[in-house]
Nucleic acid binder design. Sequence first.
DNA 1: GATGAATGAGAATTCATTCAT
DNA 2: CATGAATGAATTCTCATTCAT
Lengths: 178, 178, 178, 178
Amino acid sequence: MVEAAGQLLVETGYARASTNEIARRAGVSVGSLYQYFAGKEDIFREILQRHRERVLPTIMAAFARMAEPEEDLVQTTLDLLRSMARVNAENPRLMAVIEHELGWLEHEDDAERDLVERLAEILRRRHAVAPTRIAATAQLLIVTVAPLSRWLVHGKPAELDTEILIEGVGRMLRGLLG
Amino acid sequence: MVEAAGQLLVETGYARASTNEIARRAGVSVGSLYQYFAGKEDIFREILQRHRERVLPTIMAAFARMAEPEEDLVQTTLDLLRSMARVNAENPRLMAVIEHELGWLEHEDDAERDLVERLAEILRRRHAVAPTRIAATAQLLIVTVAPLSRWLVHGKPAELDTEILIEGVGRMLRGLLG
Amino acid sequence: MVEAAGQLLVETGYARASTNEIARRAGVSVGSLYQYFAGKEDIFREILQRHRERVLPTIMAAFARMAEPEEDLVQTTLDLLRSMARVNAENPRLMAVIEHELGWLEHEDDAERDLVERLAEILRRRHAVAPTRIAATAQLLIVTVAPLSRWLVHGKPAELDTEILIEGVGRMLRGLLG
Amino acid sequence: MVEAAGQLLVETGYARASTNEIARRAGVSVGSLYQYFAGKEDIFREILQRHRERVLPTIMAAFARMAEPEEDLVQTTLDLLRSMARVNAENPRLMAVIEHELGWLEHEDDAERDLVERLAEILRRRHAVAPTRIAATAQLLIVTVAPLSRWLVHGKPAELDTEILIEGVGRMLRGLLG
DNA sequence: GATGAATGAGAATTCATTCAT
DNA sequence: CATGAATGAATTCTCATTCAT
């Protein structure tokens, strides 16, 4: 059902994705759909939820490595970027549309705030940057890496080599963290 | 009329902004609206268009300064970031909604591609980076600065100081361009 | 629902017969109407269809009699004319409006072609006319009888006696077939 | 203007032929259109009117010949049929649509009634048929020849030879007229 | 729990007609 | 007379949601 909704979201957009059609594609009745979801929005909130659950472990794994003092911060961040790009690549169209069309139904940067908090904690423990700059640096990392990972998948022109881009990002990160 | 549409977009979102209500607010009849716009989408496309026309001069002015060899590339880029944030700040709610709700009707690839091209030309003339890295660097600058400028206005937590963030961006840029 | 549409068609014509009003008269919601019909045209196409299904058995029965060698061709054709006039007379207003207003949505060529074919076969088996004239004669019969049967019901001036007219048609048929 | 309306009538049908589009095609403003016509219906009534004015002289000429005792009634009627078919052939699509779509805006069989009257008078003077059958015969002739002439132009299958059909009609007429 | 027909408010869009310029 | 922008009532059609079976 959520899958059917995802398909339709990609094909027609949120507005034209009707609950009846979602149910039809999922091979259930509209009635059943309303047994499991409170309404149309709720289905797409679930899509968002699953998206986060898919992405979060990747980020957490990267954070775990970043927390290790012997790991290079820049390298692990670039690895994170690569991982995120890989996750996005699983269903690039869907990921793109989730970003484009489902933004309005989340008030909760809670998740993002939490990530920033964790990253700040890591920077603090590793004495990676001056204490006054920790919060801003953590934010900047999150705010920069996320759009980049999406763009790498569905925005990047084909003629641009990914590794050269990643190397450029590495320079940016070294400037920020160095 | 476009103004009325913008207001409604902010207040109710794209889906609930009806053409009849837009016309009513603009003080004209629906018929007139359809004399000037091909349909609902078209009105909002116009909003997008005006948005771009509002933003482009700012970018072009910054590019002009970047092209001057005596200007510091990083400083002018940060100025660009500040200018864009200022433009976005003129009507933060509208900008936010344009981001969140109107993404699906833009195919602004051409516009962005053009910007990247101009920026690449500047980097080339200033010998700012190695020739092999020009394209990637230009892309990275655009892809990084654009979301940042938006985020500074409608995503940034209030407790974070803008200047510290900008300084962080400065470090990233110096890393990239240095 | 089709009945309600028929009523409205008679009362107001195709253009002024709105889907909402049709639904209201049928005692259902517009939504239901659109669950069963693809659109406005579709409802009226169904009216046409039912009309044909009502008329066809009459024609087929007459054809069956015409196929019998012992039956008089002219008499059975006149009987067909009378039957068709009777069918049209069941709801003369509706038949008239179907003629006048629904012509543009029929491509009944196939149905008519089939009738001509069957009639030609009958003429051939009965050696009613010279082989070279069979096709033309069958066509002529169909093309002449059909409008006549309609005209008898909703075109004929009241002061004209039907039987005298039918007798006249008999003369024509005898001329054609004799 | 009437020409533009005729074109549109053929291309889109009465319902979709808008006054604005008619004016545009005619190269005048809607305002002007309403200076010359009382409304949409009026334009199409004019089309009907011109249609009749185009057809009537042909019929009258044939009637004049029929009135001559030395002319063969059947032959002149067949000539009329040929002439009418020729008139229809000038713009077959338009003639067909006029019949199909504009029927509802004429209450006036006055014109037809007049024709029947004249034909009856001719039959009476020529003693062509028994007095009791004059009215019915005249009607039958009109009612049969009119649809036939239209059908010859826009309904007749290409593989059917016109002259064989006309010959068949001749037989019918000879049967009818004695 | 599942079903899916029924609902009907609400949306987008059209177009005959008017009237100030 | 000509113009054509403006009008807005009316129409077609959609779709989230309900509820009796």
